[in-house]
């Protein structure tokens, strides 16, 4: 039977080289594939370019990957938060490169990559610092900025359930970047709370079809979900 199931996170991450570009799902902690990130730190790949909405919270997950000095560049919309001390320190010391992208443009650039779109004109950011030097065009009286797709070698995402074909369903607002990153990466690795039997997911409710998913690893209930992760901050 066709199966994308890995025996563990270590096997799921096999082959990620130094210098890889990796999308990591999640908005803050919701949907962040913490167990896969922990395994990536152990795996040792370095000089990575990371694409995420944020630049790590607290000391775990993405923040721990940064603290281990594995990341040379981050592409994100909202790096500075009350608990982004790891990123702040690296940035102040000039040890990490930052590409800042408005959140909706970040999402659409990722979507465009997965959908085979060569570029798109967006009104977001027109006339601001973040559009400086970019091509603009007036269409039907409205001003737009040309943005290009954002793709990656790997995506690490988190979902609730998968079946052996890699079909995914998510939980609540933890869905966030998962579906679009899955489509935009050459190799997509999904961690899930649990794997269900083929046929157990209602096809009407599959969110990410398995064609976008290459490897699946079950991590069980995410224990870190249960303790103090709520630190409010904008976007």
């Amino acid at each position: 039977m066709r199966t994308k199931l890995s025996t563990g996170a270590t096997e799921a991450l096999a082959g990620i080289p130094d210098g890889a570009t990796i999308m990591i799902g999640g908005f803050g902690r919701a949907g962040q594939p913490v167990e896969l990130i922990d395994a990536l730190i152990e795996q040792g790949a370095t000089d990575l370019t990371i694409i995420n909405n944020n630049a790590g919270n607290g000391e775990t997950g993405l923040a721990a990957l940064l603290a281990a000095r594995r990341v040379s560049k981050i592409v994100c919309s909202f790096p500075r938060q009350s608990d982004s001390q790891v990123f702040n320190g690296l940035y102040a010391a000039g040890l990490i490169e930052l590409e800042l992208v408005p959140q909706g443009n970040l999402a659409e650039r990722i979507r465009a990559a997965g959908a085979g779109i060569g570029g798109f004109f967006t009104p977001t950011g027109f006339g601001t610092q973040l559009a400086e030097g970019k091509e603009t065009r007036k269409i039907d009286g409205r001003n737009y900025v040309l943005e290009y797709p954002l793709r990656s070698d790997f995506a690490l995402i988190s979902a609730l359930h998968a079946d052996p074909w890699g079909n995914l369903v998510y939980r609540e607002t933890a869905r966030n970047f998962g579906p679009i990153m899955a489509a935009a990466a050459t190799t997509t690795i999904a961690q899930v709370d649990s794997v269900v039997e083929l046929g157990a997911l209602d096809p009407e409710f599959v969110v990410t079809p398995g064609i976008y998913v290459d490897r699946v690893v079950a991590v069980g209930e995410r224990s870190w979900l249960r303790h103090g992760i709520f630190i409010g901050e904008q976007a």
Partner: peptide, 16 residues
């Protein structure tokens, strides 16, 4: 000067 820029969804909300 020296402030870490963070835009989030601000530019999308402005036209959203």
């Amino acid at each position: 000067p020296g402030a870490i820029p963070a835009v989030g969804g601000a530019m999308d909300l402005a036209i959203g």
